[in-house]
Nucleic acid binder design. Structure first.
Lengths: 206, 206, 206, 206
DNA sequence: AATGAATGAGCCTTCATTCAT
DNA sequence: AATGAATGAAGGCTCATTCAT
């Protein structure tokens, strides 16, 4: 059945997020999913292929969601205002997945995995870069350091998503869990904050 | 001899940064350091204790450097302007170490390590938080989301430090290596950018 | 359908010959035959039973071919001259099968398989022994070491059949493949050589 | 200690001879040798490297023994008479090793192992080929099929060495074991037989 | 008749650690 | 102070087989 394959992907996402790719054994994964460990080989071929399948699955389901907004208008200011909540939603819809990606992206091992991860992350990053470039060219934005502005934007989200529960507790004082209302709370704070920071940074003062 | 212990710490820092704590075997480490693998147990007791020793060593050497600046004046604006380059220097002085810390801080394993890492990271974070709080209280800063402003500040640095060589190449187009002049380049860009973003964000417009 | 069963036997014979019984997995076999791996259990019950079925099939089909020649005359010299090409043809008609048998016959595992293999091989060996014994008894052959003469006779054929392609290439300089004309070449050389050796060895000199 | 390494080699030779390379697990081997299975990795690196080490060890110790005899005279007849017992002794000194080599040489897997085996076997084969070629050139031997004469010679020894205990019992009626007196018996019979066959085959009749 | 799914046992290898010297 | 030797546990993976359909 295909929902066993799906169950493996879900459990893998959870365990990879909590303990890392190296820190998760296929025995742990199989036990957690209530299956024989040979099923991982059966469905995916290997632990590494499972990872690739996870990226494939998650990124394909996410890319469909956001397409239109940034094409609807050519005004960089409006495009930015539209992209920020859209991106935040996209990331918060699958926080564990991005926690995994960012951690693995910081390693210098398993080059094939690295390539896949970089491809996935950069696809989204480039949406933002385009707006910045257009805005600066058109004189709507100040002449900022585009690379580092992107770093700030994505760094903010990454930082929030990547921190372990323990770090969150001690840094933000507030739980960061699977609770839906909790998520809505952060979503709104994050969107407001990012818009505020980006606009203050990019827009020329009257 | 003590420089053998030091050599182990240095090699461990390098390998942990590149391949992660789990991804680095003590065999690799011993081979890289040109010693017998029993030396790790001999000097540190275990792989985990070695990690703790690494944190101990690196953080103690860094904390001494920055103490005075933030006490010298009570003006939050000036204190911020002083803290930013000081912090950036502190981080860039040991980029590998922070790359390790941030990655491990995103895991939910080995609670004892987690605690040590959180302690180390938060000690620095709190310097920044204090300035923010004072500034807002004194009305010199706008009433921003302090937690998320911190996240943005540290997220920017983390993002820059954590990305793998491959990610750097593809995201920023520029190498990020051990080259000294390269480091100076990034140091200046980063300080300028952070000050600009923070001031635009925090300072009320005339 | 029965030709699927036959296809499995054929592919099994090929793979066992190339990689040995242990070295061939039923996965490889099923894939090579383009079937589901459950078919092996389905048709044969188990991998070992498949082997037995292979022996059954090949040896039964071969035994029918050669019966008459050795009964037609009582002269050992003529019987020998008739048996040699007949045996050579029998072996060369199925070189892979004998390659398998001889290899497995050199093991000391799976006693049941061993018994079956020994039965099959000895049935043919005994035809030769009988001629030798009769010839010596009748004074037509010299009083040779019958056991070792048999060993020489069968050893020659076995050696030729068993060597891997790589060994053949390097030992005989000539390919030993499925090519029909190639086979005819070896068949004639082998018959001539064996007759020459045996006659020189067995017949008293004038 | 190095005699543990030696013990592993000895046990491996025994088990490989009895059950084949594939049919012997490193668990069995370690248990048989009374060690932890990690020692195989420790001493040899891998199961395959252990095999290579076995070949290295056995063949190096054997090559030294026989050098002089075939150089002492240029008469092919005498050289043959000297080489036969010398070769037989060489092979019977390590029957298990050659049983392994011949079996593995009949496979078409693990090309690196194949190469090593072929090298080892051919080195000895070529001593014999040279005598044959010289003898024929000098007109001392009949114009025989040199390749197949070699096959007959080595096939005889191989056949005797390779058969499993069960096959021996049923084919030769006599045990073929580690018993020293038993070995001496076969050694003499084999030398006599081979000389007789080869001389009858090669020497022109008066 | 035939198959995809599933399993438990076993494979080889590497892990961090400890021990005797 | 330092090391080669040794270990038990765990790693990812493949094995032959069975089951429900």
């Amino acid at each position: 059945m295909q929902n066993r394959r799906r169950a493996l992907l879900d459990k893998a996402e959870f365990l990879f997020a909590e303990h890392g790719f190296e820190g998760t054994s296929i025995r742990d994964l199989a036990k957690e999913a209530g299956m024989n460990l040979a099923m991982i080989s059966y469905y995916f071929g290997s632990k590494e292929k499972l990872f690739e399948a996870l990226v494939e699955d998650r990124s394909s389901s996410l890319l469909e969601k956001v397409k239109a907004p940034n094409e609807s208008t050519s005004d960089p200011v409006q495009r930015l205002a539209a992209l920020v909540p859209s991106l935040v939603d996209r990331w918060l819809a699958n926080p564990r997945f991005y926690r995994i990606l960012y951690r693995e992206a910081s390693l210098n091992s398993r080059p094939e995995l690295q390539r896949i991860i970089a491809d996935t992350l950069l696809r989204q990053v480039n949406e933002f870069r385009k707006i910045l470039q257009d805005g600066v060219e058109q004189g709507r934005f100040r002449e900022v350091d585009i690379d580092l502005t992107m770093v700030t934007f994505y760094g903010t989200i990454t930082q929030l998503l990547s921190a372990s529960p323990q770090m969150h507790q001690r840094m933000l004082g507030r739980r960061w869990g699977d609770d839906v209302s909790e998520m809505a709370h952060w979503r709104n704070r994050l969107v407001d904050h990012l818009l505020q920071v980006m606009q203050a940074h990019l827009l020329t003062r009257a």
